[in-house]
């Protein structure tokens, strides 16, 4: 059975460094234009483009993104 994967974004931790956007192979990530409690313009994902490869979760220096399996 195929596992159901989802990309979880903990936007409260995001510092808008842009590394995930730079390394995303499908260009599914972007800054959303809103601000979190720390005042950073946090990251958002396009779920249709995302292939749940967890590249963003590997490079993220602030543990914002991770792919979780059901």
């Amino acid at each position: 059975m195929k596992k159901n994967k989802t990309l979880v974004i903990n936007s409260a931790r995001c510092k808008a460094c842009g590394l995930c956007i730079h390394f995303c192979p499908k260009k599914a990530l972007s800054l959303c234009g809103e601000f979190n409690d720390m005042g950073y313009n946090f990251v958002q994902s396009d779920q249709e483009l995302c292939v749940k490869c967890n590249t963003c979760g590997t490079i993220c220096p602030d543990v914002v993104l991770k792919v979780v399996e059901d």
Binding site: N10, R13, C17, C60, P61, D62
Partner: peptide, 15 residues
């Protein structure tokens, strides 16, 4: 997870 890193954006210490 509830505690945000105090390092600057993009710091390798977080990784």
């Amino acid at each position: 997870e509830e505690k945000n890193f105090s390092w600057c954006p993009g710091c390798g210490h977080g990784i």
